[in-house]
Structure formats: C-alpha cells, structure tokens
Design a binder for these strands. Structure first.
Lengths: 109, 109
DNA sequence: TTAGTTCATCGTAAATATACGATTGATTTG
DNA sequence: CAAATCAATCGTATATTTACGATGAACTAA
C-alpha cells in the first residue's frame, strides 16, 4: 500500500481535514467525545466504566484523539483528567465547516 | 477484532457521524470532493487524469464516497458523470455541524 | 461484427486499525 | 518499604483499508 500516496502532493488543508475525519471515524471515539463534552466537569477513566471495552482499548482511542488534538489529558495523580481541547475543537469546527460550505453547482447530475 | 464492538449499542447518530467521517478520512477523497465541488459542471473520469493514481484505485474511492451518500454517479455512456449529492451533503453538514457545536465546559483542565 | 473506450470489479499484497490480555511505570497509601 | 491503584504501553491476533494490475461488462464507432 501507500505505493503512490507519497507521489501525490496534498495540500495541508486536505491532510488536516482527512486527519481530523480519521479521528472521528470510529463510533466509540464519537461516544468518548460526547461524554467528555457533556460532563459538567472533566473526566478521567470513568470512561472505562461507561464503555464496555477493555481499558487498554479505550486508552488507545484516547491516544488517537489526543494525537488529533481534539482532547487533552492532564495528569492528576493517581488519575488522568481528559477533556475537550476547546481551542483545537474550534479550529476543527472551522476547518470542517469551511469544507462543507463547498457545494456542488446547481444543474449538475 | 470487533470482538466487542457488537456489544456496545451506539446510537444512530454516533454511527452516522463515524461513517461520514470515515468517508472523509483519506486525503484523496477530500481532493475528489473538492474537484467535484469546484467544477462548473459535472465530472467524469477526468479525475483519472487529474489524480496520479490507478484508475481502479480512484474507482474504489468513488465507490466509498457513493456508499457514504456524498456523491452520486450518473451513467452517461460511455462515461459516468459524478457529482456532489447536494441533499446528502447538506445533511452531512448539519450532522457534523451539530456535533461540533458540542463543546467542553469552561473551567475544565 | 470488430475494435476501442470507459468504468467497475476481482484478486492480491502490504499497511493500518482495532481489540484483547499482560505488563510496566508512576503515584498514593498503609 | 510493600501493596494497591490507575493509566499507558507492549505483544499479538484478526479485520479492514488501500493500492495495484488484470479482467469484465456496457456501450460506441468503424
């Protein structure tokens, strides 16, 4: 795979949107984000209790979300507090929003 | 894999958003959507000329976008005209827009 | 009919994603 | 210090994605 991907020069926006979308491409990650966003205050591994998945799996998904910049974790021994990274979240919203503002032209198909 | 996925009951919105995001999770699909959206009129396999990838690969990506409902193809022998499915596109925008309206609470982390 | 065009699909190889249990590392508590 | 807790990481099995070339199906043109 990826035999030609490197030959295509994507612009940064295309890459950013795709990376963004990839982070959102699994339902459990959507669930996690919803849970984090809905909490009155920040969250920790209660996720492990709310989501019937192995702790290691949830940790993996959290890592993916963190790497995408959507959430941030604050070590708060002996726990870790996760929450939406509001700044990045806003940027993502803008990015995706602008992309969706594109539209097919009338009279097509 | 998927050993527990079926045990978790995701709600339809979570599934829809994740599916949507998955369709957008590859830069070449973002590129394709942009190309389709920017064309004054609808498109066919000129994509094959604009994107340095095997025709079969592009066809595969088009299929993914079609299955996600984002584009539609109209057979127009001997070619096929693709374009943004504006109705679905609008729905996707709403879905994603609402999701992004979620936000972490102030005072977190 | 025959050849050519266009696109989808098949078969396949390699990369990546996803899940688990087990282990490790950091920190707190006794 | 020892034991307990919490979360990350490791190792691994399986599924999915992604890419390619080759083939096939539908249609046009000669």
């Amino acid at each position: 795979m990826q035999r030609t991907l490197s030959d295509i020069s994507y612009n940064p926006e295309e890459i950013a949107i795709a990376a963004m979308a990839k982070a959102l491409s699994h339902p459990v990650r959507i669930r996690i984000l919803r849970l984090l966003a809905e909490q009155t205050c920040c969250f920790t591994g209660e996720l492990t209790e709310l989501i019937p998945m192995a702790q290691s799996t949830i940790s993996q998904h959290l890592k993916a979300l963190k790497e995408a910049g959507l959430i941030q974790g604050e070590i708060n021994p002996p726990k870790v507090k996760y929450c939406i990274d509001r700044e990045q979240w806003g940027k993502a919203r803008t990015l995706v929003g602008e992309f969706f503002r594109l539209n097919g032209h009338a009279g097509c198909c």
